[in-house]
Nucleic acid binder design. Structure first.
Lengths: 236, 236
DNA sequence: CATGTTTTCGATTCTAAGGCGAAAACCCCG
DNA sequence: CGGGGTTTTCGCCTTAGAATCGAAAACATG
């Protein structure tokens, strides 16, 4: 401790650190989260986020990847980022456990194999969840929604190539309200995060004009130069 | 650990958790951070962020307030928020210490008393800093800059009432580039975060029209409904 | 080949933001 | 007490992003 202090009297006895991941994806026009069902006594049969205790020789970013690999093929994850720390002294019973929560995303076209105890659940309509994991899921959902508006994070939800109407349904499901396809395309195009793939695909079962395929220009997270407020002069 | 795992072999021996705060303010048109000079052997005489080990019965938000109270009157803080977790296994020598970093802000008109070892330092032009604290300071600065653009967080840097030109200097110093006073006022007013106080103040030493006073409509953090992209229909 | 369906594109309107320059309000000095 | 200098404030104009609407394009089906 840097300075003497009496407030935290009995010190750090038993202060463990765990890492948790809220892995989200879109399926059938709904936002889903990856949960596994507990088979042990605290919160038996409740559904929990993947995670586990931080190892002695790893940072939290490394740890979350390792922990997730027990539940899902981590190579299928398209994005992972730090979310927030949850540290209520009683967030889990009988021990002191601080959690660093992460947001993970999986594209809607990949379907990783899952262990028997693990399943996707709709975020609106969660089962009984363990500990404070529901709050973590909702925090992850809100973070995703915010970033959809001011970054290119859609790439992490979408397949490599997609039609505009497909993308519209992805965004609508993630945001929780309908978005207009025409606007979505123009906004993302003008921001330079969306580009035409040049190819088109066959029309649907009901006919209709065969849609063109698009892709995201980058698959790395990019914040779209936020709100023009107060930028340095003479700049795009 | 939720599942058996061999990767984090020797477990969590000695994994401590500390809380650190990068407290920023504007002074003389420069962004400053609160640092104290170490008198102990790891990184002796280097400048460090206020903080300390997490207590057994407190969450990180409570802890950072307690730790800060050793260096500064926490009632003078206008805003505190979680920043990020820093968890490199070797970020501090000889022990394993995970840090939850916070961003704190102090209005430019209050001048809290400081201990002898504690001082404000310009963020551009830091002295020799301890451990990874410089990276934390820069993360805090970037977070502040981003939020100035899309929230009302300016209230945490400004006095209760202020002139437009005063506010312009605050924003310029925090952002690192000149902003136009006329634009600043209109943008913030239109967003509804700024309002006229009704009163005016005496003109400066060189004469000139006496400026009107303004205030922030709210002193709680509010995200300005971000980028109009894809909003639900029929909404301002 | 007509009809229905879906995608795509263009035209228009609306709102936000940035850039001047003029007017307002005050000081100081002669 | 009036003119010149200074600072603030306001209005007009331009630019750009976003939302809405409707028409045109391209295909399937009967």
């Amino acid at each position: 401790m840097h300075h003497p202090s009496t407030a935290a009297a009995d010190g750090d006895r038993d202060t463990g650190h765990e890492v948790l991941a809220a892995v989200l994806r879109i399926r059938e026009d709904r936002l889903q989260v990856l949960l596994w069902q507990r088979a042990q006594t605290p919160d038996l049969h409740s559904w929990a986020l993947p995670g586990g205790r931080l190892g002695a020789a790893e940072d939290v970013e490394t740890s979350v990847t390792r922990q997730l690999s027990e539940k899902v093929d981590v190579h299928k994850l398209s994005h992972v980022e730090q979310l927030s720390v949850f540290s209520d002294p009683h967030r889990v019973p009988a021990q002191r456990l601080v959690a660093t929560a992460f947001l993970g995303l999986v594209p809607c076209d990949v379907d990783p194999e899952l262990p028997a105890d693990t399943r996707w659940h709709p975020v609106d309509g969660l089962p009984t969840t363990a500990f404070d994991h529901e709050a973590i899921v909702l925090t992850a959902r809100d973070r995703l929604r915010a970033k959809l508006s001011y970054s290119n994070i859609g790439f992490a939800l979408a397949p490599p190539e997609f039609t505009v109407s497909k993308l519209r349904r992805l965004y609508s499901a993630a945001l929780g309200y309908r978005v207009a396809a025409t606007n979505l395309q123009r906004v993302l195009s003008r921001r330079g995060v969306l580009e035409a793939a040049g190819r088109t695909v066959a029309a649907g079962p009901n006919g209709g004009r065969p849609p063109a395929l698009f892709r995201f220009t980058s698959r790395d997270l990019r914040i779209t130069d936020p709100f023009a407020v107060l930028r340095p002069p003479h700049q795009a």
